[in-house]
Nucleic acid binder design. Structure first.
Lengths: 203, 203
DNA sequence: CGATAAGTACACCGCCCTGTGTGCTTAAGG
DNA sequence: CCTTAAGCACACAGGGCGGTGTACTTATCG
């Protein structure tokens, strides 16, 4: 039952409370951080009464965990499922996230929550492992000799760029992409018909 | 009644409250995070009255900033001033920080404070730039063609290992060190006489 | 000694936080 | 229609936080 919001019907601030809460959390947790966003403010932004929020989520912890689970489709699948790119290009495409990404929310959550046992921290861990695994898959597809190692290396580069971008307040993904290009070329034994050239990636 | 460390009576005033506060902050901010450590708890651990703490620091913000400034000597100088190592070895030695480092406190501060204008965030930024600069200096010493680029790349690797170690709760510095070795070998045109092991590097 | 600065003990303020209790209104659907 | 459940408004509890006021004690040194 309860076929809730399926379109613009829910213009009133009636029935789609849960979705509005999660949508608002996406914005606020990113802009202000998890600890920096109170439930009062979040409920106000979501146009949801506090009582309703606590009927959908047992507590803020559960809300935070659920909030983290709403990133997969866009980021993870969106990059790896592009069949128009070669495996190598797909690996490098993972570093093209300049505009709308203040900081990887998984790292932020792990640091802010400061508790490895927290559901959100555990999910962050799982997610990071999943990304490394998908990178490894693509690396295997690209013909790397040690795909797991390359996947782990590329994952580390992504996290490094995310963290460093946060601290320096400057986009460091180009640097990470340049390193990735070197690693990929070094890990693929002797590709033949590829378009790969040694691109110094100056800019 | 609190026979605290007296040491040399160099100071004519003061019985070491400030030092105890900063010493306690080193431990607590790392173990519990900055936001997770209250002034009450910190003062109790430092065996300092709260009133005294606020006579030494105008507020928690200032204390946090000062806390961050107490890391340089050991980490930064300790690695780069080792004359017993070749430049290349010194660059790689920056990745040998496995035992006593839960997470780079600069990244943690930047994420937790969530305000680029915060004094501590600004200092974190300066520090990260300084590390990159010293890495670049050493890279130049090692004969890299583009020392600035290599320095920035190595700095990114360190931050990546720190962040990823935090999220995964696993030591990822070996992975970063492996990448560093590849990058260094690729960046130094034709090293001679070194003991560098060529790991699949196709010049 | 006595002056002075450093440190102490402890209560207290106001604020914001997560989380609830209670009663009321609204929308959906048979 | 009337039932049912989702949502709302609002007040409030309990606690931790950063920070302060006040009066007292202690160490250091001229």
């Amino acid at each position: 039952m309860t076929e809730l919001e399926k379109g613009p019907t829910g213009r009133r601030r009636g029935r789609g409370a849960r979705e509005r809460i999660l949508s608002a959390s996406q914005q606020l947790f990113r802009e202000q951080g998890i600890n920096g966003t109170g439930m009062d403010q979040l409920c106000a932004a979501a146009q949801v009464s506090k009582r309703t929020a606590y009927q959908h989520f047992t507590g803020k912890d559960e809300l935070v965990a659920e909030y983290l689970r709403r990133f997969d489709p866009a980021v993870l699948s969106g990059v790896f499922d592009r069949t128009d790119l070669t495996p190598r290009e797909r690996l490098l495409a993972a570093f093209d996230i300049p505009p709308t990404t203040p900081l990887c929310p998984y790292i932020a959550a792990a640091v802010e929550l400061h508790d490895p046992q927290h559901p959100a921290s555990q999910y962050a861990r799982d997610y990071k492992k999943a990304v490394a695994a998908r990178l490894a898959d693509t690396a295997r597809e690209a013909g790397a000799t040690d795909p797991e190692q390359l996947g782990e290396q590329l994952a580390l580069l992504i996290d490094g760029a995310a963290a460093r971008t946060r601290v320096l307040d400057t986009d460091t993904f180009p640097t990470a992409a340049a390193i990735a290009a070197v690693l990929i070329d070094n890990a693929v034994p002797a590709a033949a018909g590829d378009d790969r050239r040694r691109e110094g990636v100056s800019s």
